[in-house]
């Protein structure tokens, strides 16, 4: 009878070198970050009075302000709808160009994806600041910001959907000599339409959230009023704006979630 062999642990495993290494690295990074950002836990608690004061002032909202902000809230939704639509419309050709099952040219695909990656790196508020400088204060800057922001997001979601389609119908059409456009119209589109609409609604949800703060930099919508109330220290108005935004976001999320469940 042979003696059972017990698996031996290597030296690095026995002394948990990897785990200890990661922990030390994490701690060093934490301490370095804390020093760089000047974190001072004591200061937060010594100034807690000011913070709670702010919360107390926010906790009795000025309800009569609701009437003022309904119009800008609607404008925010309109900005989000238009921005998402423009972004999604531009995203479709780019999504087709970066789907590996439709475009076999690796260079073209790589270049398109690199471009989309670059677009996606830019945070929304940063885009808003630049477009306010170009187009001036108003909702135009907001719509264009949201269009570019959703273009980057939607194109990635769309090409991932395109890559998961069933290639059977495509091959069938190809074998009877259909053109590229015909193939896309009759074989690709029916397979992806529902998912496209679902992702469109998902992006709309995110854009409604994003558009509520864009106005902070002058890009229209409710954010303009948010900035005004904060600058004038009218925190009871800020509270109304935040609550109203919350309601709008929840309603849009609810409608969109329901529609997406019906679609898929």
């Amino acid at each position: 009878m042979s003696t059972p062999t017990i698996p031996r642990r290597s030296w690095t495993q026995r002394y948990h070198v990897k785990g200890i290494g990661w922990t030390v690295l994490l701690l060093v990074l934490l301490v370095a970050s804390a020093q760089m950002t000047g974190v001072n836990v004591g200061m937060f608690f010594s100034n807690l009075g000011q913070f709670t004061n702010l919360l107390v002032r926010m906790s009795n909202p000025a309800w009569d302000y609701t009437a003022v902000i309904i119009q800008p809230l609607l404008e925010t939704i309109q900005m989000a709808i238009l921005g998402t639509t423009i972004g999604a419309a531009f995203a479709i050709p780019f999504a087709v160009l970066s789907a590996s099952n439709l475009i076999h040219n690796r260079w073209l695909r790589g270049l398109t994806r690199l471009f989309l990656d670059l677009v996606r790196t830019l945070p929304d508020l940063l885009l808003a600041a630049i477009f306010v400088a170009i187009f001036g204060i108003g909702s135009t800057a907001g719509v264009i910001t949201l269009a570019i922001f959703s273009f980057g997001m939607v194109s990635k979601l769309f090409y991932e959907v395109i890559e998961t389609i069933d290639m059977g119908p495509l091959e069938a059409l190809e074998s009877v000599g259909a053109t590229k456009i015909t193939i896309i119209w009759y074989a690709v589109l029916p397979q992806i339409l529902n998912q496209f609409v679902s992702y469109f609604l998902y992006t709309l949800e995110i854009n409604v959230r994003a558009s509520t703060v864009l106005g902070y930099l002058g890009a229209g919508g409710i954010g303009v009023f948010l900035q005004r109330s904060l600058n004038e220290f009218n925190y009871n108005q800020t509270a109304v704006i935040i609550l109203a935004t919350l309601v709008v976001v929840l309603v849009i999320d609810g409608v969109s979630n329901h529609l997406r469940r019906v679609l898929l």
């Binding site: 950002t37 000047g38 974190v39 509520t212 703060v213 948010l226 919350l246 929840l250």
Partner: peptide, 28 residues
């Protein structure tokens, strides 16, 4: 959900009131 919907820049502004402008407010 409530925490998620509260705009991040409003939080930042509130923390700036508490700890002054700077990266500490950003961390919070």
């Amino acid at each position: 959900t409530l925490i998620r919907t509260f705009p991040e820049i409003v939080l930042a502004i509130m923390f700036i009131k508490a700890v002054g402008p700077g990266s500490y407010a950003g961390v919070l």
